[in-house]
Write a protein that binds this DNA or RNA. Structure first.
Length: 866
RNA sequence: GGGCGGUUAGCUCAGUUGGUAGAGUAUCACAUUGACAUUGUGGGGGUCGCUGGUUCGAGUCCAGUACCGCCCACCA
């Protein structure tokens, strides 16, 4: 860590500093939470990144926001725990390991379950530190000593308990239902893991001959290959076209099996032919129809997506892939002249979220969680405000999903995951659901594992020692305070944590859910490796510095939680700010002479009062906005205060006349305010400051608070007036191209007392030479400006073109006149005067008076110029 | 089909009790006056998607409409 103020580089070397500072924090164990502390708790659990993953911008944003909040709360006197960890990511991880095996020409079946799990564990163990290490480069102040993994022993214990309890309560059941089957993953997946894509397909109309009489019924389908699994043809009961056919039988072409024609409300008369083939084993809607009518289920496609060799399926198709079977079926139907019509048809096809393979809906025996009873409390607790979403609109989204929730298919035919704690008797087949195998000799455990989200759904409490409710962490830090995540996993994760948390701990697992937008590329497209439009946060951090990346990301978080369009260059914003802070601080530090920086409120200049007043106001607004998760707003205030107030004015003024106690006070407070956003930079500078410190690190210091004793409203306003005068003079200089090296004289009419106090400021910042106070100024050969109640005249004989000055003044006059006119008109409107609030009317009146006097002065100026 | 978001300066976006529009960036001019060129100073640039309504007054509230994006549902 830099200790010597004299040799600081003129540009901020972010990475060098950041690595050292992070190490300093880590070595001192400043991130470690103490469950025995008396301080009030603040806890937050990380959305566990996949163990397969590498840090992406989404993590960077998510992590930044979590760290900002954690650091802010820590500085506010809370015992803070930010708990890190990884998700075992069932399918994703298994995919990776299987791919590696495939390179050796092997499949998981070749090596067997035990060996496969051994390899996968090795792989997971070697990778799980990687992503958390990358989080460290973000400056994450999480407690790594508490890092967890969703497949570790503790989680496994929690998962088993939850499963067994839910089973015993009748909320988990096993049964044959239509599920979303991924033929590539060789597993069932849940409804929300199925994504629908619009595809251009066909609508085939096929004629099913009637039995025992002439004629046929024409059905429409997008999947002719499933016709062999048909168990009925359904029509709408009110459809007069088919009225007479209901109850009769028809014959499936090609195989000649007889099926009934039934009536069901579900059928849409206007779609296709109005007649629908019912295939309960391969379509969720048909499944429902089949159940209503007590029809049989004939499965014709297997788990590989191949046609099953059974008598109902045409022998030519046995073993064929579903798509090939489709082609063959069509050709056969054509040959038999029962293919009536082919239409182009756009429809939605379900895809596996993980591998994008087209889902095969099929009948399968799986485990499900009955969600409806669990959802009740989860709905209630959000409705009654016990759990609050920020921004609020996500509540609606959550509630809509919860209120229409369907059962959750939790079993996966994978090897990597929590094995379902159900045991089957080797001979009788009897099933026992229990925490332990009742008798390993005679019982064999179910081979299916649980959906990854089943264990992630327990994350806030399984990581705190639950089911041991007396564990210190659970007692101190559960429930957690805030959850920070993106909207894309509200259903997958947030909703499940809420339901499970309420069911098993009786309290909401967190009180606030802060939802941020998603990171997108410059064109607003989702970032993905396959598109090649990703920005690697690790590289951005190397290039711009971690603090720069953090500050930039935070600045892009809007109140509405809009998605963030990002490009690498945007980080220049944060980098420039970091460099500005570095240099301004360097200046302050290099110019300190005193040893005692005690602030003396009775000995302040007008500029000191102004900056203290500004800082105090900024503090108030920053805290207010932080409490309301408006990170972008906070960064704006920090940036504006430091750059536009502190650097542009106060530091400049301090070159004329400096108050070291105010300089150090303001810098110290600003660094603390900024610390959650730019932790390393602020820590480094703070460590260099020769002030009295109550803590060994800024990250442990107290967060500034608004304090009324710094309200210097009147002096501040006067100071602002002076700044306006300086700006006006600079403006005049600029418009007449007066070189900085040329000094000007000023004649000031009015506000003598004020300007007398700040003469030195005017001299330096407006490059003024002599300042004269006059009663009635001669303006010939001069430029002038009106500021408040005073007039400033700059004699510029030889330097200006009078015509230009008249033009300049006229332009100003026009502006003022336009404003005055519109305001006057408003005042003439009786209704306005009557109905607008008194305050507004008075303000308008005052502004008109102000404008009038300014206009008068300028008119006088123009008159005397010409 | 249902729901949600967006449309404001060339670009990226702020603007939450309705009181005549802001930032960053880009651009133009000037400047190397010892914290900083990752800089300083000054300037130009917007009828706030469109139409109507409420109101003394609308970027802000209401209704409708167009376009872009997202989510849910899944009529085979």
């Amino acid at each position: 860590m830099q200790k010597d103020v004299k040799n600081l580089s003129t540009t901020y070397n972010a990475r060098e500093v950041e690595k050292e500072i992070y190490k300093f924090w880590e070595d001192n164990e400043f991130f470690k939470a103490n469950s025995q502390s008396d301080k009030p708790p603040f806890s937050i659990v990380i959305p566990p990144p996949n163990v397969t993953g590498i840090l992406h911008m989404g993590h960077a944003l998510d992590g930044t926001l979590q760290d900002i909040l954690t650091r802010y709360k820590r500085m506010n006197g809370f015992e803070t725990l930010w708990l890190p960890g990884c998700d075992h990511a069932g399918i994703a991880t298994q995919n990776v390991v299987e791919k590696n095996l495939a390179k050796e020409g092997k499949t998981r079946h070749d090596i067997g379950r035990e060996e496969f799990l051994k390899i996968t564990w090795e792989w997971a163990n070697s990778h799980k530190t990687k992503i958390l290490d990358q989080f460290k480069t973000l400056g994450a102040s999480f407690d790594l000593s508490r890092a967890r993994f969703t497949l570790d022993e503790g989680c496994s214990k929690a998962v088993k308990k939850v499963f067994v309890d839910l089973y015993n309560k009748g909320l988990i059941y096993k049964g044959s239902y239509i599920v979303n089957w991924c033929p590539r993953c060789q597993s069932a997946i849940s409804d929300i893991e199925t994504e629908y894509e619009t595809e251009q397909g066909h609508l085939w109309e096929i004629s099913y001959p009637l039995k025992d009489e002439m004629g046929a019924i024409v059905i429409a389908t997008t999947r002719p290959e499933t016709m062999f699994g048909d168990v009925a043809v359904a029509v709408n009961p009110t459809d007069y076209k088919y009225k007479d056919l209901i109850g009769k039988k028809c014959v499936i072409p090609l195989t000649g099996r007889e099926i009934p024609i039934i009536a069901d409300e579900y059928v849409d008369k206007s779609f296709g032919t109005g007649a629908l083939k019912i295939t309960p084993a391969h379509d969720p809607n048909d499944f429902e129809v089949g159940r209503r009518h007590k029809l049989p289920f004939i499965k014709v496609i297997d788990e590989q997506g191949k046609m099953i060799a059974r008598s109902e399926v045409h022998p030519e198709l046995h073993g064929l892939d579903r798509y090939e079977a489709r082609e063959r079926t069509i050709r056969m139907l054509e040959a038999h002249q029962v293919l009536v019509k082919i239409d182009e048809h756009e429809h939605n096809v379900g895809k596996c979220q993980r591998c994008n393979t087209t889902i095969e809906p099929l009948l399968s025996e799986q485990w499900f969680v009955k969600m409806e009873p669990l959802a009740k409390a989860a709905i209630e607790k959000v409705k009654d405000g016990s759990i609050k979403f920020v921004p609020k609109r996500w509540e609606k989204n959550y509630l809509m999903w919860m209120e229409n929730i369907r059962d959750w298919c939790i079993s996966r035919q994978l090897w990597w995951g929590h094995q379902i704690p159900a045991y089957h008797h080797n001979e009788t087949g009897e099933m026992v659901v229990a925490l332990e195998n009742p008798d390993p000799k005679n019982y064999t455990q179910e081979t299916d594992v649980l959906d990854t989200w089943f264990s992630s759904g327990l994350w806030p409490f399984e990581t705190m020692g639950w089911p041991d409710v007396n564990s210190p962490d659970f007692k101190k830090f559960y429930p957690t305070t805030t959850l920070i995540t993106g909207f894309d996993i509200i259903f997958f994760w947030v909703a499940r944590m809420i339901t499970m948390g309420l069911e098993f701990t009786k309290v909401p697992p967190f009180s606030t859910v802060y939802i941020h937008g998603l990171i997108r590329d410059e064109l607003g497209q989702k970032m993905s490796k396959s598109k090649g439009n990703t920005i690697d946060p690790v590289l951005s951090i190397e290039k711009y510095g971690c603090d720069a990346v953090r500050f930039t990301l935070a600045s892009m978080c809007t109140y509405g939680g809009q998605d963030i369009k990002l490009s690498d260059e945007k980080f220049e914003f944060g980098r420039n700010f970091a460099n500005k802070i570095w240099n301004a601080s360097r200046f302050v530090l290099m110019n300190l002479e005193n040893k005692d920086f005690e602030l003396d409120l009775n000995n302040l200049s007008i500029a000191d009062k102004w900056i203290l007043n500004k800082l105090n106001k900024a503090t108030y607004e920053i805290v207010e906005n932080l409490e309301n998760y408006r990170m972008g707003e906070v960064t704006n205030i920090l940036y504006d205060f430091f750059w536009n107030s502190f650097c542009d004015w106060y530091v400049e003024l301090s070159k004329i006349e400096k108050n070291e106690s105010v300089l150090t006070f303001v810098l110290d407070r600003f660094l603390r305010l900024l610390h959650p956003f730019m932790p390393h930079l602020t820590e480094q500078i703070w460590q260099l400051m020769p002030i009295k410190k109550e803590t060994p690190a800024i990250m442990l210091s107290s967060y500034p608070k608004y304090d009324e004793k710094f309200n210097f409203e009147e002096d501040s306003n006067a100071m602002e007036l002076v700044f306006e005068a300086i700006r006006s003079i600079r403006n005049i200089r600029s418009s007449f191209n007066i070189a900085p090296s040329i000094k000007v004289n000023l004649k000031i009419q009015g506000e003598k007392e004020l300007y007398k106090k700040v003469e030195s400021y005017l001299k330096r910042l407006a490059r003024a030479e002599n300042i004269e106070y006059v009663e009635n100024a001669e303006v010939k050969q001069s430029a002038s400006t009106v500021v408040g109640n005073s007039k400033i005249i700059i004699p510029l004989a030889g330097l200006i073109d009078i015509k230009e000055e008249i033009q300049r003044q006229n332009k100003k006059l026009l502006k003022l006149n336009t404003e005055k006119e519109s305001l006057s008109q408003r005042m003439m409107n009786e209704k306005f005067v009557k109905s607008a609030p008194l305050e507004v009317v008075q303000k308008t009146k005052a502004r008109i008076e102000e404008l009038s006097s300014e206009i008068e002065v300028i008119e006088g100026l123009i008159k005397s110029l010409s």
